[in-house]
Structure formats: C-alpha cells, structure tokens
Design a binder for these strands. Structure first.
Lengths: 243, 243
DNA sequence: TATTTTTAGTTGTATAGACCAAAAAGTTCT
DNA sequence: AGAACTTTTTGGTCTATACAACTAAAAATA
C-alpha cells in the first residue's frame, strides 16, 4: 500500500489511500479510522508523517478529529457537487430534472459601457448576446441572457448553442472556467419575464447575475437570469476557514 | 512577541502575529516574509513549529509558498471574506455598514416536527427562538428568526443576544461553526414583514434559510431571514473543483 | 451498588536533526 | 560581458522522541 521508494511522498500515498476508502464507502461517516500510532506502526512510518496525511484530509473535509478520542470520517458533502456546477444544465440535472431551452434571440452586439467594464473589454467590442428561456421538465424556469466576448469564442452558431454551449467551450475551445461570482437578488417579474416565464404580473423572481472567469482571471461571460421564484430555490454550502 | 510559557500554543501565537502584520498592511501582497529558519532562530523555536504556523496561514489563504524562493503574502481575497462570514453582523461590516438589531421576541419553545428534523433533534425538544429586526445604518434590512437547540446553548439571555451572540458562542462556549448551508429564494413580503421592514405590500423580499453545523457535523442553528430586496443583494463567489 | 481514582489510549504541541529538490546568488572561466 | 559551474538559501519530506491534554474504560474505594 505504501511504497517508501516511490518518488511520491509517503504522506500523499497514505492520503490517497484513505481518501479511496472513504469514497468507496469502506469507511463510513462517523466511523473512527485507525489511530495515528497504528498507521505509524503498520506501515513503519513516523507518526508525524501520518499526521501530515491526516491533517490534509481534515483540511479537505474528509475527516474530523477529537482530542482524546480519535479521528473520524466526515459526512459526504453536497458542497463538492455544488461548487462544481456552473451552468443551468448541470444545475437542473443535479436536481433530477430534465433541462431544455428555447432560443429567443442570438446576435452579435457592441458592448455597452457597463457590460464592457464587467467583461474587462473595451467599449463597443463585439459580444455575443444569447437570450433563452430555460426549462426544466418542459416548464419555464428562467429567462436567461448570456454575454460572451466574441474574440474569445469564435464561430458560435445556433446549433452549438442548442446543443451544449459549455461542452463546446470546454472541449472544443479547451477553455476552463475556474471561478464565478454570483449576485443574487429578489425582484418582481418585468413584462418580458411575465410573458416568457408565464407568471402573473407582480410575481416574485430570483435574479442571478453570474460572471465567470478563466484560469488566468480573464472575465469570460456574464449571465443574467430571472428565475421563477415558485419553482427555483438557490442552494449553497459554504465552509468556514479554520481559525 | 512569542511567550513560550503561555498556555497558548507557540505556533498559534506566531500565526496571529503574522496575520496581524498582514491585516495591518505591514506585510504587503507578494512580499516575502522571513524564512522558516530565520523565524526559528529569532524566536528560538523549532523549524517544524514555524512550519505549523505557516501551513495554517497558507491553508487560510494568507500566504503562499514557493520552493527554493520563500514564503509570500497573498493578495487579500474577497472570496475568503465571504466564505468566512456567517452572521448578519459580519456581513454588514463587510459591506461597510453599521449593523444593529431590535429584538422582537425571545423565548424557549418546543421544536415542531419540521424544525426538529432540520436541527436533527427529537420533536418538542426545547429550542430558543429569537426574532429580530436587523438593521444597517439604522435602516431595516431584514427580519430574522433564529432557532438554537437549548441543550447546546445554555443560559442565553437578552443581554447576550443584544451584545454578540456569535462571539458568545465561539468564545464563551468554545463551539466552532464549520460550515453552513443556505437556501435562497425570492418571495413577496408577508404582512409581518411589511410591518417590520417598512416596505409596501407586494414588495419583493429575498428569503435566506441558513443551517449551520459544528465541526462534527451536528446541526447547530437554523436562521430564517427575509431581506428587503431593494437594499440587499447576496454576493457569492464559487470556485470550481480542479479536474 | 455507586462513586472515585487510576490507567491506557488518543490527539495536540514541540524539539532537534537529517536529507532532498528547487531557486538564487556567487564564482570562475572563457 | 557572458556562460558555465559551485555554493548558499529556501521550502519539502521524514524520522524519532517527549510530554501535555483529553477521553473512556477499568480498577479501586466507599
């Protein structure tokens, strides 16, 4: 299990080994794992090395410790899943619904000052503007407008949009979205939203504005969405930095 | 600076000391801090102890390391701040506003089935119910109801609530909140919300339900808030898990 | 039987040292 | 001046050990 001759650090080998056991369910939540000294003796490695492995797993949320009692397996976190999702499609699949879209408009427009600032491009730089009604299980869920700098995503077609814009971006253009900032607020449905979402006037909507960034920090897209409040709830898990 | 006789661990003292220097701006982003060996010699402590302090600061995002070069101060991240905040007070301070509260009611009630399930306690177990109007710069911002299992937080008084509930929990009871799940949705202000938040009937509100968990995963509190949509925007940065 | 004390086991803190690998700085040679 | 080599400094990994703080179970005591 542990190869001392390997160029891979011992603590890392142990870390991966324990992580496997947890993810395979061989170690169950709240179950105690062997003590540090047990690992130390079993694999003939220093206890400090074992601690390094366990500390990393504690920091990653896989384990938790209790002084005088032992080290235990943490509950699997939904958070991991939620952190990863960036698109409506992924979000809906996660909720067990079937996502679909209806394209309203698709054009290239010059970036207005406000948009240009958010995407960190010059004014009037061409951007794609994609308006879509997003549906879950064939029912209108959100009205979404996506803005993409045209120079970053060339040769976009209606077909690509209808298929999977994200897949195209990640696989064909090999761009990776590293992080996203979301601003969420409540509002009352405007007229276009009333029409496209098929809600009564005066209905509440959840507005989400998401800005995504590439690995080097370049702003990549701006997505403005208006969700039907009666159908959509935003769920989010946050972890506190250890003091 | 470092007191070896103190009951506070040495690594923790060093950690706080360096953190201070960063937050005070005496150490600037991308500036190199003294090497591990320098700290070790200057304070006559083991290099491993220094490493423990630095590792914690790296994990918390205050520092980053480069093999062969040194250890450097990280850029202040908004994200870090956002992840850390758990209370209305912290949130408002972060936004540069002055938070305050007005207590509406404070009592111990038996947990209803739904609440009991969310807090993972038995039905009718006593819980504190605290209703407050939360204000920012003296203007009503949110109507908040907090539920705390009475067995976890004993001897709560009005005074404590008005002072700082979180400080009391973390320092006096030495409980640490590790993570929180939030559900966010949009709605129309109900009558009590209309009254306490001083909005017109039909106004949109942002509803946030937060469940906080302790280090071992025990549910600790449930907070239901209704924010004035015209004054409050929820901001959230998420990072994508590396593939 | 009930209570207190002891004991064994656990994680937490800390030390002193060793060697490695990467980067930077200094030195020598061309 | 520039290139190639050597030395120094830095963080990364690992060992072996010691004692403290805490928990839970066992043993001794009332």
């Amino acid at each position: 299990m542990i190869d001392k001759q390997s160029p891979i650090p011992i603590y890392h080998q142990l870390e991966e080994y324990i992580k496997q056991l947890i993810e395979n369910g061989k170690l169950k939540p709240d179950e105690a794992i062997p003590s540090e000294r047990e690992y130390s003796e079993q694999y003939q490695i220093s206890r400090m090395t074992v601690r390094q492995a366990l500390n990393n797993l504690v920091n990653d949320g896989y384990l938790y410790r209790q002084k005088g009692r032992g080290t235990f397996v943490n509950k699997q976190k939904v958070e991991q899943k939620l952190q990863g999702l960036t698109s409506f499609t992924e979000d809906m699949k996660e909720r067990g619904m079937v996502p679909s879209s209806r394209l309203i408009s698709f054009e290239i427009i010059p970036a207005e000052p406000q948009l240009a600032r958010k995407l960190d491009i010059k004014e009037n730089t061409p951007v794609y503007e994609i308006k879509r009604v997003r549906m879950a299980d064939s029912l209108p869920m959100a009205l979404e407008t996506t803005y993409l700098p045209a120079n970053l995503v060339k040769g976009l077609t209606e077909e690509i949009i209808n298929k999977s814009l994200y897949q195209h971006i990640e696989e064909k253009l090999s761009l990776t979205i590293r992080e996203a900032t979301q601003q969420i607020e409540a509002s009352i449905a405007k007229e276009t939203e009333v029409n496209h979402l098929q809600v009564e006037s005066g209905s509440p909507v959840l507005l989400i504005v998401r800005t995504s960034f590439l690995e080097d920090g370049t702003p990549f897209e701006l997505v403005k969405s208006a969700y039907r409040a009666d159908r959509y709830k935003f769920v989010h898990t946050m972890q506190r930095a250890a003091k």
